[in-house]
Amino acid sequence: MRVLSLQLPMILGDMKSNRDKFLSVLSEVIDEQPSIIILPEMWATGFDYENLNRFSRQTEEICNDISERLNENTLVISTLPEWNYNKVYNTVYAVSSSGVIASYRKNFLFTPLNEHVYIDNGKGITVFEFMGVRVGLLLCYEIRFPELFRMTARAGAELITVPAVWGAMKKDHWLTLLRARAIENQCYIAGCNTSVMHGRKDMPCGYSAMFDPWGEAVYEPAPEEGVYTGIAEPAKVAEIREKIPSFNDALNAFVIERKN
């Protein structure tokens, strides 16, 4: 399975420009190969908090637009605001040619930048299958919460996608934690970041990364705008878990619960 991260620049609050940019590149990279294409967190709007509720009214239309561009071999991981009355959810939609086939609401919100003031948190995890690959959906800040990744992997995920807006000044945290989540859960972790977040003050980001179940980089992370591509092989997940059975050993030793 090809896994592509669209590491492109975003403009805070400019839905039209972001939509034109990302969906144009999306259309260019689609072919007949089985593919999962990941877009950065809140790629269409950025964290334009005061306008997210208004923007969320266009989410269904955007998901439909994405779906109409796809063939049956392509899945898009798209994070968009989901309307929820006075607040919104930060929601990941898994979009295929038949429409939205799965979604996930961000559990852990980034309180240092007041995400929790404008956005409601979700509860639970999401794992689904696409063309023989079990996919889990998580987001950005959540790489700092290994319990959430363990629950997602325990639910069967062989590949966990992580859309993000993560500043380059913390790239060592980003790369270290993505790699750690791959090693400890013995599965693929694919983190897709924007290249630059243009806003009141531009924030360089970059360094989208994908790690295999052994913790090896599938491609070299870099700061530049581009489409970064790797291959996920479910058989390798089973191979590594058999070679060093730490993941399976933990299943019989611990009970992991999430309390509301």
Results as ranks from 00 to 15, higher is better:
M1I: 10
R2K: 15
L4E: 04
Q7E: 07
M10I: 15
G13N: 07
K16S: 08
S17N: 13
R19S: 11
L23D: 07
L23R: 12
S24M: 07
S24H: 12
E28R: 11
V29Y: 10
L39F: 14
P40C: 10
E41P: 00
M42V: 11
N53K: 14
R54M: 12
R54Y: 08
R57V: 14
Q58K: 12
T59G: 00
E60H: 02
E61S: 12
E61A: 12
C63I: 05
N64H: 10
D65E: 15
I66Y: 05
I66V: 15
R69W: 01
N71Y: 00
N73C: 03
T74I: 10
L75M: 04
L75S: 06
V76I: 13
W83C: 06
N84R: 10
N86Q: 12
K87A: 01
N90C: 14
V92N: 08
V92D: 06
A94M: 02
S96P: 02
S97M: 03
S97V: 07
S97A: 13
S97K: 14
G99R: 11
I101F: 00
I101R: 01
A102K: 06
A102E: 05
Y104T: 07
R105A: 09
E115H: 10
E115N: 01
E115A: 08
V117A: 09
V117L: 05
Y118D: 14
N121I: 08
G122F: 09
V127W: 04
E129S: 14
F130L: 06
G132Y: 09
G132H: 11
V133N: 07
R134C: 02
V135W: 02
G136Y: 04
L139S: 05
C140A: 09
Y141V: 04
I143H: 00
P146S: 02
P146A: 01
A153C: 14
R154A: 13
A157V: 06
A157K: 01
L159S: 02
I160G: 00
P163V: 03
A164D: 03
A164S: 05
W166C: 03
M169V: 13
K170F: 13
H173Q: 14
W174L: 15
W174R: 13
A180G: 00
A180R: 10
R181F: 02
R181H: 02
I183C: 13
N185M: 05
N185C: 14
N185S: 10
Y188V: 11
I189N: 01
G191W: 04
S195P: 07
G199D: 05
G199F: 06
G199S: 08
P204H: 03
C205K: 01
G206M: 04
G206L: 11
Y207N: 12
S208R: 11
S208Y: 10
A209C: 15
F211R: 10
F211A: 10
F211C: 08
W214A: 14
G215C: 04
E216M: 07
A217I: 04
V218F: 00
Y219F: 15
E220A: 03
P221A: 04
P221G: 01
G230R: 05
G230T: 08
G230I: 10
A235E: 15
A235I: 13
P245D: 09
P245H: 01
F247C: 13
I256G: 00
I256C: 02
R258I: 07
N260A: 09
